[in-house]
Simulated assay, not measured.
Amino acid sequence: MQSSNPAFRNDKAFTQGGYATFDDTDRRRGQAPTRGGSQQTQDMTPEQLQEMYSQPSAGGPQTGRMTYDDVVVRTGVLFGILVASATATWVLTPPGLGLGLLLPLMLVGAGLGMWASLSKKVRPGVMVAYSLLMGAVLGALSQAFESVWDGIVPAAIMGTLGAFAAMLVAYKTRLIRATEKFTKRLLIAGMGYFVFVLVNLGISLFTGASVWTSPFGWLFGLIGVSLASLFLILDFDYIEQGVKNGLPQEYAWRAAFGLVTTVVWLYIEMLRLLAILRGGE
């Protein structure tokens, strides 16, 4: 099963199967796992064997494999940079000034996001730069929305956190399962929505009209929030598969980055939906 999150799509280790089934040398050669060390155990005394087997099993940190703690820590780092950048932009930028830099920052941030997602090499530095730039984007965007709709930013933050928590509970309780059919349908819907947003952006640039200001704007906003929320299910699933398959520890950065990109998307959609609902104020 292939993830629809670009941060995971290039990594087969995030799929059902096994990354750590046998060592790297055997994996490259296509051979069965070797049994090196059997002669060594034969030369050990019974006391030494008993002591060896009494030791606790090696965990992720001891084997160099990714763990949930690794993902949590790196997610915290990227989110910390994102929030710090957004806060600094809001506080230090005069109202309206950040909007002029919004489009260039978004384009650069999108480029960094694609680089980090599509690169076969894990690039923590690029992911940090993405979080820094997108934090500035969210800070300027939030400042602009708050100046028009008082209290909309705290509501959007609470809505984003609520959606995240709801999707996590739905995933952990298996209320929503990331089946192959679910993944394919969500991927098609996500691609369709992305094309729709681009077309609407092009029309609005030339005509000034936008579906977001139409009587059905709230419906499109709700679709955006729903899609972004459901993509979290795929993120959770592929993080779980990566841990189960014994992905190298450095890939925790990529797992964290996938979560951050989805949450950024969810927050923007939540902000836009609330603005549509409060448009008449």
Rank of each mutant, 00 (worst) to 15 (best):
Q62R: 15
T63Y: 05
R65I: 07
M66L: 14
M66Y: 09
T67K: 10
D69P: 00
D69G: 10
D70M: 02
V72E: 11
V73E: 02
R74A: 06
G76N: 04
G76H: 09
V77L: 09
V77G: 03
F79P: 00
F79I: 10
F79D: 00
G80S: 02
L82V: 06
L82R: 00
A84R: 02
A86I: 11
T87M: 07
A88P: 00
A88V: 06
T89C: 01
V91F: 11
L92P: 05
G98C: 02
L99K: 03
G100T: 12
G100E: 00
G100F: 08
L102H: 01
L103G: 00
L107Q: 02
G109H: 07
L112I: 06
G113Y: 07
G113A: 04
M114P: 02
A116H: 09
S117I: 01
L118M: 09
S119P: 09
K120V: 02
K121G: 08
K121Y: 11
P124M: 03
G125P: 10
M127W: 01
M127T: 01
V128D: 02
Y130V: 06
S131K: 00
S131Q: 08
M134V: 05
M134C: 01
V137P: 00
V137R: 05
G139W: 06
A140I: 12
A140M: 09
A144D: 13
E146I: 10
S147E: 04
W149H: 13
G151Q: 06
I152K: 02
I152S: 04
I152A: 03
A155Y: 07
A155F: 05
A155L: 12
A156P: 05
A156Y: 07
G159F: 12
T160I: 06
T160D: 14
G162Q: 04
A163P: 06
F164I: 15
A165W: 08
V169R: 14
V169F: 15
Y171S: 09
I176S: 11
I176L: 15
R177S: 14
A178K: 10
